[in-house]
Every structure is written in C-alpha cells, then in structure tokens.
Design a protein around this nucleic acid. Structure first.
Lengths: 213, 213
DNA sequence: GGGCGCGTTGGACATTTGCGCAATAGGCTC
DNA sequence: GAGCCTATTGCGCAAATGTCCAACGCGCCC
C-alpha cells in the first residue's frame, strides 16, 4: 500500500477501525479486519497502536467525541438556555443512527473489562452530563428555568434519554424512536419548571406502541 | 464426574455458565470455562447445548427471569398499588448487585448480533415494563394515582432506572448507588401524581457527587 | 450378576486471535 | 541518481476457541 505520513496513516487506521466496529461490533473487531478494511497488512496496525484495546478505545473516542462536539457547536449558537436545550434534543441523533448508539452499548458493556474503553466512555458521558448541567445553570441564571440541583437534573435527563434510546436500538419495536426524544424533552420541561412545549423539539408522530405491540 | 440425570445435569451446566458469566462477562465465557467451573469435561456441554450461543441465552434467561419473578412475588404481597411500587423499588437490586446488571449491559450489547440473546432480553424488558404498567393501571383504578398513559409511563420509569443504573455500574463513581433508586422513585411519584415520599423506598444517603467528583 | 444404554471423557481438529520480527521497498535528502 | 530512514510487508508463533467424535465406564434392568 502507498506510503503515508504517520499522522495521516494513524487516522486512516482509526477510520478503518470505526468502519469495522460499526459493522461487526466493538468486541468482534480484530486486527486483521481493520487491516483488510484498509487494504494493508495486519502488522501495520501494531506499528501505530500498542494493543487492540488502545485502538478500540481511540476509535470509539473519536466517534463519540465528534458527536458531542457537533452538538456543542450547534448549541453554542442558541441565544438562551431554552433555545440551546431545544437544539440539544433536535440534534440528538444517536438513537436514530443506530450504529452510533450501538457503539455506546458496546462501550458500556466492555467498560467492565477494558480499562481504556471505560475511561473514554465515562469521560464522554460526564461531558454530556456537564453540557446539560451548564445549560441548566445558565437557564436558572436567566430566570427562565427553576432547578435546585442542575448537576442531578442533568444526570436524570441524560439517563432517561439513554435508557429510552437503549430500548429503541437494542429491541427494535419496543419504543417508538420519536418517543425517545419527545418523552425526554417533556420530562426536561417538568424537571426545569418550563411550560409544556417550551422545548420545541420535533414531536411529530409521538405515539407509543400499545401493550400488544 | 458423577453421572447425573439429564435434567439435573442441564441445570448444573446453566448454573456453572452463570457463575462464569458473572465473573468473566457474557462475551468472554468459553466452553472450557464452564466445564472447569463444573469440574467436568468440555465435551459434556455440547451434549446438552447445541451451541455456545444457546447456552449463553438460556443462562441469561434463567438469571434475569428469576430476578423478575422474585420481584413479582414480593410485589404481589402488597395490599395496594402504592405499596407494590414501594416494594418494586425496595427490591430493585440489579444496580447493587453489579454482576446482575452487568449481564444486562452485556445482553443489550450482544443483542445486535445474537438473536437468541436479543429475544430473551427484549422479552424480559417488556415483562418488567408490563409489571410496572399493570401496577400503575391498578393504582389509577384505586384512584390513588393519576396517569393518562400507564404504558408510556412504565417505559419512562423503567428507562430512567436502567439509564441511571447503567452509569452507576459501568462508570463507578459517576452516580451514587442510592441515588439510582431514590431519583427513580421520586420521578415515579411525579409521574403518577403521588405526594412526595409516597413511595417509601430506602432513601438514606442520597447525595450526588459534585461536578468535581 | 451380566449386559446394555447413555452420560461422560478427553483429546483431535481447523480456525482465529493478538502480537512480534526480519525483510522489503518507497520516497525524501543531499 | 545514490543512500538512508522508516513505513510497510507477510509470515511465524503460541494460545485460545467452538465443535466433533470414538472410546470409556457408571448404573439400571432383566
């Protein structure tokens, strides 16, 4: 394969690893899979990454960090906290892009036995929570929201979102995908003393499937 | 090893598999691990289970079903819906018994690629949701609760519980373990129009760790 | 108590895995 | 264009894995 500058090759490997991870799952991704995906030899991977765990953690880190950063940038354009929360739910795509959320499911499971993966997933989950907490704190300062403990509220909102998305992705058919966003947004309004509908996330077709579904 | 009647041997294998799964994780459990755990040969496992996937799904099914059934039995002793909800949160041990919840994390992750595991985890998650939904419906009939859509409320309560427990187990230190129960119970009260503290789950030491923690 | 059924053995087998290493070759510098 | 640095190769290696199978021996039935 063509010779590449190290930095470029390194990101090519990460990109290839991500492609395989989304196709076969984090746990089932092997050195040879990544090499084949790139069209190079397997030895090359170990020239850039000390171990497979490293590569998996770095790859997951890149995918998840980018997702977070995109949301942060989008939110930063909001003029007030309520607008930023609206953006938060509007751009929450993890549940719709199954592969991205599946990576989170893999990470949470692997966290118990892969220290590098655990450190990454914890750091990024905390970052998501902090993003919410800071927005809430700002909203309280703006007097558009009321919240006794933004830190706790942020954990609850994020956890409800993840818990619902989990069902939607892992058990297709249990929960309507739009309900994941709508229910989380509605709960957020309650939690922050906002009027119903204040977080104007797309709410079309919010209909949960009946007990028989 | 001593000869056993097939039914007995079969459950011995399942029990051994569970023991290994809780120690090494679902994905990392091997035929030889299970055989060693039982003190028998590895060939014996395949005499009772067609494939490793089968065994993993059956073992997870047994553990999770038993957990659910214990809760159901405990709840059935409640005299009204509120009492049953209190029992529900009081006996919710999955977050405290890390190994049990870790199995759920493994199952949700593996669900994407192991049909047998997905079917089991979905069926059991739905059963948990239904248990909640039926209790809520009963509470509404008793006029002690108000809820426009018990089915949806049940999904939200369960998802918040799972989402919080997920953080507590996968990322030790992020969320206080008691907060998982307390926050979920408090949310349930809000969702069902119950007075604060109506669900008298153990609430001691509910203190979330600060942003620096 | 002898014989038979089947629970059980324990290793064979092919495959896959992470990782390492000596050899190769591509491209930049002088 | 020569030479050197290093990116890249491609195989080797040991360990582990799921699955299969022929032989073995325990315990029940006649």
């Amino acid at each position: 394969m063509a010779r590449m500058p190290p930095a470029e090759r390194r990101s090519a490997i990460v990109e290839a690893a991500l492609r395989v991870m989304t196709r076969k799952g984090m746990a089932a991704t092997t050195v040879r899979d990544v090499a084949d995906q790139m069209g190079t030899s397997s030895g090359l991977i170990h020239h850039y990454f000390a171990s497979m765990d490293d590569l998996l953690a770095v790859a997951f880190d890149q995918a998840a960090s980018q997702d977070l950063q995109l949301t942060q940038v989008a939110m930063s354009r909001g003029r007030d906290a309520v607008e930023r929360l609206t953006t938060f739910f509007g751009t929450y795509t993890r549940a719709e892009q199954d592969w991205a959320f599946q990576l989170w499911l893999d990470a949470w499971s692997e966290a118990a036995r892969r220290p590098a993966v655990r450190a990454t997933s914890q750091r990024l989950n905390v970052a998501w929570q902090r993003l919410l907490a800071e927005t809430i704190t700002a909203g309280v300062a703006e007097a558009t929201m009321t919240c006794a403990d933004p830190h706790s509220s942020a954990w609850r909102i994020l956890s409800l979102l993840d818990g619902l998305a989990l069902q939607a992705v892992a058990h297709e058919g249990s929960i309507d995908r739009h309900a994941v966003i709508a229910w989380s947004a509605a709960y957020t309004e309650t939690e922050l003393g906002l009027p119903e509908g204040a977080i104007a996330a797309p709410r079309a077709q919010v209909r949960s499937m009946g007990p028989s579904g």
